[in-house]
Each structure stands twice: as structure tokens, then as C-alpha cells.
Amino acid sequence: MTGNWQTNVITKTVKWSANFYRIMGLEENTEVTFNTYLEHVHPEDIERVKLHQQNTLKNNKFEDLVHRIKLQDGTVKIVRVRANINVNEFGDIIDIIGTCQDITEQKASEQKIIQAKENLIVLTQHLSGQNKQLEDFAHISSHNLRSPVSNLNALLHLYRISETEEEREELFEKFETVISHLTTTLNTLIEALKTKKECEKELEILEFDHILRKTKEIISQKISGTNAIITSDFSKTPKIKYDKTYLESIFLNLVSNAVKYRSPNRAPEVHIKTEIIDGKIKLTFQDNGLGIDLKKHGHKLFGLNKTFHRHPEAKGVGLYLTKVQIESMGGKIYATSEVNKGSVFTVIFNENRHEEPL
């Protein structure tokens, strides 16, 4: 919410808009003076606000100011104050006309972002100290966190260049979703540091549609930025009993790759579907991207640190991790592909154990 205000330096009168009264928690048309505003400035910020006032009158220039206010009911808000100064022919200030924007929610979202990044740093430092037993886990962590962090950075860029309050409010809704997923991922990975033996893995009933929806939310900025079209058909088998962390990682890696390695000549299209083949769940990811020359690269398609396109984000980790996760659960993965037409990655679950069609 943004309110308007005007202070006449000569007559010492103050005018506030209806929104400004709402921000300050006062009834509209309550008689106000400049001291009324100072009385609502947070005690810890009052000296800084008074100094700002002195510098404004001294330099005939109003610098943007962010500070806290404390309402009569004890509510604390954060506001951003901006203004223009009008002077007479002698250079004396006549009046100051400005805006006051309530940015409490924005600041709260920024704090969540900062906290999420701090959690990432802590997790990275923790992982760096692990022994050889956790080497593969460290690869999984850094790779699976890359997409939400990349999405977060893209949203931050849009926030910095947004011009209207409506745009910022829309972005904050996306911040909340991405941060929620990021926090969940961090908590899951931290718990996974207590590495379990394969037989001790906890399986749960998962809906493919829910996993895909979460994946699309995590990489929402990449999807919208490339006009990607992602469709699915899970009608043949909508659920599976599987390890949640692994299934989310499989979807994130394969969908992200389909969007990342798109053709420059067309918008990316990805279709995901499930089937039952010989009593086993078959999951396919089909795209219309760059494709891979399997005659040349097929033998190293799922190798660690193997890349097949000159893409700045290519790390050669995603397919390797996906294969390791699927095979550790008794499944298998393979691909068919044609250069400049696209690829199909096929996952066969329930190969020997663990997964159960539902």
C-alpha cells in the first residue's frame, strides 16, 4: 500500500491521503502535523529520521528513506519514504510532496530469502566436511539445489526492475512458493545426511501429478522465460510407492534438462506419461529439443561429468545421478534421441524390488 503526503514548510501544514492514514493506523481526516509522523517513528529509528529531516532542509534534497514505524496498537511496520522538493525563486523550500509505501511484507520476504541463502551456505559447509561416503550425496545436494536457487535469483532480478506495487506483490507470491520448496529440500537433505542403507529407505505412496506440479513450481521462471509447454498423462497409473527424494530428483533433472537443452527454432514441449508394461511402471519424458547423437555419445550418456552440448549450465551430473538413483531402487533408464528433433527418456520402475504399481 502506498500513501501520499504534502508538507508546507512555510505554513507548517501537513496533508495526508486516505492510504497514508491507513498505513499509520489512524482514522481518516484526523488532524495531523509533522510531529504526528515523528510520534509514530520507531524509537530506535527516530534519531536517524530527524537527521534525515535536517539534511533535507539543509541540502534542499530528499533522499529515499526506509525506516520503521510503530502504531498506537504496537504494530511495527517498515515504510519507504520518497519525495520531491519545490522551491521558490530564491531557492527556499516551499513544500515537500511525497509518498510513503508500506514494504513490511516485502522486507519479510527478503529476510526469508536471506535466511534461505544462509541455510544453503551452512549446508554447503557441512557437506564439504563429509568423508568419501557422502561424496555422491554432495553431488545430489548441489545439483538439486541449483534449479530453485537459479529460479530465486531470476525472481530477485525481476523484483529489482519491477516498477509497480502490483508487479512486486505478484513476485512475492512466487518467492513464497520457491522458498517453501527450497526450505523443504534443505530439510530433506539435512535429514538425508544420516545416510541409510538401501533396505532402510522409507517408501511412501506418491502421486506423479503432485511431483510434476512441484517440479514446475520450482523451475517456473525457466518455464515462463522459454514459453515451455509441459503436458502429462498419468491416467494409466497415477501413483507409485517409492522414495520421495529420489522421485522428485528424477523429475527435476529430466524436466529441467528438457527445457534447458531446447531447440533455438521452437518453443520447448515436454510430455510426460506413465504406462504399465509387463506389470512394471513405465515413465517417459519426451521433448522436442536439440536431441543427442547417440551413435557418438550413447556409451557415455549417463556418465559423470559428461556433457553433449555447448551449454553454459551443462555440468554432466544430472543424468548420472538420475541413473544411480533409479538403479539403486532396482529400476533402469534408457534414452532414444534424434538430433534436432528431440529425445525420449524412459524409466522402468519395479524392476526387481521396492516399487509397487497402485
Rank of each mutant, 00 (worst) to 15 (best):
E166L: 02
E173S: 13
K332P: 10
G291L: 06
V259K: 09
K77G: 01
T36V: 05
T245D: 11
H139N: 08
I114P: 13
E105Q: 13
Q115W: 02
K107S: 02
A335V: 11
L38K: 02
E207P: 15
T184K: 11
L127M: 06
S180A: 09
E207I: 04
T2Y: 01
F251T: 08
L38I: 01
S337Q: 01
N8D: 15
H139D: 07
E47Q: 11
E351G: 15
E338A: 06
H67R: 08
E89W: 09
N352T: 05
T99D: 03
S142H: 13
E47C: 15
H52F: 07
H271C: 11
F285M: 13
G289W: 02
N305F: 11
V270I: 12
E204T: 13
D136M: 03
G298F: 01
I326M: 05
D209A: 14
I277H: 14
T30P: 11
A192S: 14
M1R: 07
F175V: 06
A154Y: 05
K196Y: 05
T322I: 01
I333A: 09
Q53K: 10
N19G: 13
F308V: 09
Q54W: 00
I240Y: 00
K282F: 05
F234I: 04
R22F: 14
P357A: 07
L321D: 11
I94Y: 06
H143N: 15
E338Q: 04
N59A: 10
T185S: 14
D92Y: 11
I96T: 02
T104V: 02
L304M: 01
K196Q: 09
T231H: 04
L193Y: 04
G342V: 07
I85W: 09
L321G: 15
S220A: 03
I229K: 15
A138N: 00
N144C: 03
E105H: 14
K273Q: 08
L321W: 00
F349L: 00
G331V: 04
Y242F: 14
H143S: 14
T104W: 06
G3L: 12
N305T: 11
K332F: 06
S249L: 05
R80E: 13
E200D: 15
